[in-house]
Design a protein around this nucleic acid. Sequence first.
DNA 1: CCTCACTATTCAGTGTTACTATGTACCGGT
DNA 2: ACCGGTACATAGTAACACTGAATAGTGAGG
Lengths: 109, 109
Amino acid sequence: MGKQMTEMLKGVLEGIVLAILAGRSAYGYEITAWLREQGFSDIAEGTVYALLIRIERRGLVDVEKVPSEKGPPRKVYAVNAQGRQYLEEFWKTWGFLSDRLEQLHQGGN
Amino acid sequence: MGKQMTEMLKGVLEGIVLAILAGRSAYGYEITAWLREQGFSDIAEGTVYALLIRIERRGLVDVEKVPSEKGPPRKVYAVNAQGRQYLEEFWKTWGFLSDRLEQLHQGGN
DNA sequence: CCTCACTATTCAGTGTTACTATGTACCGGT
DNA sequence: ACCGGTACATAGTAACACTGAATAGTGAGG
């Protein structure tokens, strides 16, 4: 996709990753791969790692280092209570925005 | 709202404004007022004006100066063909994102 | 043994976007 | 003359995703 997607992902990608982690714990490489499968073909690896470090610093996730058979140790992330609360607010904000846009899309065009 | 909304608006606000203008032509002050009515309570005036100048420079809208009875002249914006095309892509991008998030919201939680 | 491919993480520098906080200017009512 | 409402503009800041590269461990093939 293009620049439009890049800009639209701001503030949303964080919620997406947290939502993934709310389903089950995962590590960066895994999340990146999953996103690519879902069609987010141009999300850079660096972006995901930077995001993970950010939400870790904010205390939204817990981290555990797990050795890998095929490479350097993995950093496995899991949402904690604070992260779950943040995610809940994320869904509220998204819902609000989604509703307005739905209206605009229906009526306007 | 909070910081979450601020970040989520990036890349979306542009589409919102274009969608409004696709419904009917409008000027900055009017758009700001409308957004506030819709619940975007903390969108700064400056933000809208900066955005309008941006999309004008990109050639997505046509501008006409119209004298006002109650103040300085209004800059009335109208989407042109290029803007309509951009808006179409915006809806596609939004739709894609909306679908993924819908899935995540259903399944994950 | 050595390189290649895959796994896995990190980081410096850049561009875009929205917010804050102003400033300018025009008008009508008191 | 002053003030509030209308209307637009801008310099500086913060946050976020991308680019492009570096670092490191493992196993397979030549």
